[in-house]
Write a protein that binds this DNA or RNA. Sequence first.
DNA 1: ACACTATTCATACAAATGTATGATAAGCGT
DNA 2: ACGCTTATCATACATTTGTATGAATAGTGT
Lengths: 230, 230
Amino acid sequence: MTATRVAGKGGMGKRRKAKVQAVAKRRQGLASRERLLDAAEKLFALYGFNGVSVRQIVHAAKVNLGAVPYHFGTKEELFKAVIYRRAQPLREEREERLKKLREKGKKPGLEEVLWALLEPAFRASRENEWFRRLLGRASMDPTPEVKKLLAEIYNVEFMVVPKELRKVNAELPDDVFYWRLNCFYGVMLFVLADPGKIQTIAGKEFDTSRPEVALKYVIPFLTAGFRSPA
Amino acid sequence: MTATRVAGKGGMGKRRKAKVQAVAKRRQGLASRERLLDAAEKLFALYGFNGVSVRQIVHAAKVNLGAVPYHFGTKEELFKAVIYRRAQPLREEREERLKKLREKGKKPGLEEVLWALLEPAFRASRENEWFRRLLGRASMDPTPEVKKLLAEIYNVEFMVVPKELRKVNAELPDDVFYWRLNCFYGVMLFVLADPGKIQTIAGKEFDTSRPEVALKYVIPFLTAGFRSPA
DNA sequence: ACACTATTCATACAAATGTATGATAAGCGT
DNA sequence: ACGCTTATCATACATTTGTATGAATAGTGT
């Protein structure tokens, strides 16, 4: 295969794995690809997977329409690429924090674990605020494709979350724990999905720029929830 | 105007208001309209506003394509109709519960208020389980049309929620209260949107058929969250 | 400078979309 | 039984959708 563009139907993903990654940096090319990812990230976050057309994305990215089939094959693959670009670094950071926590000697408490789990996601992507919103949104997207993809991602990247939380809630019976975990996800995703929502709800200004602020309020709420008598 | 079908562009909504409502019952007609609402309710709940086409809806409803322009004018109006059909009875039930609570004499507590606010929504629509999922989903839908509509609905139908919760959290400073209210919404909508999610999260079977069960777990979590030291 | 690959572009296309419409049928009051 | 409104139907239409492709350009190793 000369393998210039995405082959047939599902042949994507192999091509360029080695090549492009190796070469990516010394080229000034691939600007389209990167710009596409950025634009798609933002638009998907704002309007959802089905709420944006490929044409809107290429327009925002100032890139040709053909760039999408070329670089990603399908809209769905583009979406995946958007998520995966950030998901891995996110997991790494989360795990590093957990490691640090364990190294501190005594067994970490619920509050510390919550902090370690949430902070990276809340601060996700220094470069770009849109990813955290996308993550929240996508997690509640009812579309089957999106659900499937997200399940995939959660299995790979987020398995540590329930595992670590279980450790610091060892005394809870299974059913109680999982219901509280469910509540935890609800809070996390809601705040991730729309950091500005609180302003709408409250009808006044809030500092939503710094993620630590949100965590300052959210973590005590969650801690108390987990700690409440069964 | 002979006013048989939706006029021009935005003339809908007036026609039939008096007429149809008065006649609706003694006719066996309007079956299409009702079936459309049911099918749309379910499909919107499952796949979101942008995730379903009008054709999918009319097919599920076993109704002609033209019935949508005829009865509702646009897809968006259909969506509104789906929501409004249930939203009002929902509010009424919520308010009745609150009234009963106040009549009991002593000032109602946080837990009782939570119960009164949540139970109607969790049990929303005896006839049809889909509405509660739709309500949850729609509340997180990023699409501007849906957001606008939901804001509208919340202002009319849900204003009582923050008001009542504020009463039983009078001691909290504004910022703390609103952040906790935010968390509350997150939990509520998440559980409403996908009652079966907990099974995915836990990886095992849960009883998700009876809303009281969910509330048994969720309300203590929320109560503790609101009650946690600021 | 040359061969070659990687990328970008303008354009095409079939499928799906929301909406509109004229013809037809059904239901009601009289 | 008739007239009139309400409802249903088959069908049409202009857009928008995702994806594909061949030609043109830019970049790289030699």
